[in-house]
Simulated scan of single mutants.
Amino acid sequence: MVYLRPDLLWRHIMTPRVAVVGAAGWAGSRHARAFAAAGAKVAVLVERDERGLALAQELGAQLVPTTAELHPDDLDLAVVALPSTLQPVICADLLNRGFRVLTEKPVAADAEGAAVLAAASGVNDRLMVGYTLHQHPAAALVSQWIKNNNVIAVSVRSVAYKPKVDSWRADPKEGGVAVVNGIHAIELVSSWFDGTPKVLASSASNSLYGSPVPEHVVSTLEFPEGLVFSMQSYWSPWQEPQGLNQGDWSLTVDVLASDGRALWSNDSLHVWERDGGQYEKAFDPSDLFLRQAEAALKFCTGGIPEVTFAQALRATEIADAVLAAATSRARDVVSP
């Protein structure tokens, strides 16, 4: 007799059926292929035009123009990968109709935009917010190290390669790089510590591309217990030799504690202890979309969302404060 591990049992019982909304976009296509690789049936792709036709044919999926054509009895999960200003209304409608939903981060472009989602049915248990850093194997190790140490400061550098900044990324309503990329660091760090941090200083610039949105943001925040969080996030026209998401994203998380230091840089982790001991660990490059798809398939069969609406909303509120402080400083600089 063959026995299956509990975490693989669901695959033996059923093949989860998934729909991807916004499948023709960069993130949407990554989601669709990741779910197929994870063993799901990508049953439906939602796109307003024919841009998703080739991917639909590749995956054997039906292509439909709107989410109105999705039915909860036919699907186990709806994945929403749209610009942040569009996602809340779509996700709220899907939740109110009984779907389980995985939405791309952030939960909204700002806290005001998240209000419609906050009132949706099942938002706290049927919505998973796609913050992929939680899926990296280093994240759990750093999280545990932080719990065991008296942390003084965390510094994050998050750089996303973009040959140009255009389309929805150049829409001021989307919030610029702090909301599109820096929000990863904001959410992850805020998940490690209690309380709402105070923004001590923040600045933003659009000098790299000249787009109408913040392209480079530097901010320093302080959590209630005195821990300082420094963040630098920017889009870069230069691709770095190593990084996450197949080299598109370079991430460094430097954690300083009274008894040691932990440095997570892309797919490596180096820890120094106060007594002189240290260790290093290298990870195989991770397809974070695939790891997230595997976690989402457990979620869609009744599991707990890795990142809840409440945690995602907290990160969005912090990002709002970072941008508000940067805007205020810009006014002070140009004021006579």
Rank of each mutant, 00 (worst) to 15 (best):
Y3L: 08
R5S: 14
D7Q: 14
L9S: 03
L9P: 03
W10Y: 13
H12C: 14
R17F: 04
G22V: 00
A32C: 01
A36H: 05
A37L: 01
A38N: 04
G39H: 05
K41S: 08
V42R: 03
V42A: 09
E47C: 06
R51M: 03
L59N: 08
Q62V: 11
E69K: 10
D73L: 14
S84V: 15
N96G: 07
N96H: 08
R97M: 06
R97Q: 13
G98N: 12
T103H: 10
T103P: 07
P106M: 02
P106D: 07
P106S: 10
A114L: 02
A114E: 03
A115R: 13
A120C: 02
S121W: 07
N124S: 15
D125H: 03
T132F: 05
Q135K: 09
H136R: 09
W145K: 10
I146C: 06
I146E: 00
K147D: 11
N150E: 15
N150M: 13
A153Q: 14
V154G: 10
S158T: 01
V159M: 14
A160W: 11
Y161R: 00
D166L: 12
S167L: 02
W168Y: 09
D171R: 00
P172A: 01
P172N: 09
K173W: 06
E174N: 01
V179G: 03
V180P: 03
N181F: 05
H184Y: 14
I186V: 04
S191E: 09
P197M: 07
A201M: 06
S203K: 13
E215Y: 05
T220K: 13
T220H: 14
L227S: 02
S230H: 12
S230R: 08
P241S: 01
D248A: 05
L251Q: 05
T252V: 11
D254H: 05
A257I: 04
S258H: 02
D259E: 15
H270G: 10
R274K: 14
G276N: 04
A282I: 14
F283N: 10
F283H: 09
L288V: 01
R291Q: 14
R291C: 07
A293G: 04
I304S: 12
P305Y: 06
E306P: 07
E306Q: 15
A310R: 09
A310V: 06
Q311K: 11
R314Q: 13
A319P: 02
A325T: 12
A326G: 04
T327Q: 15
D332C: 15
D332V: 15
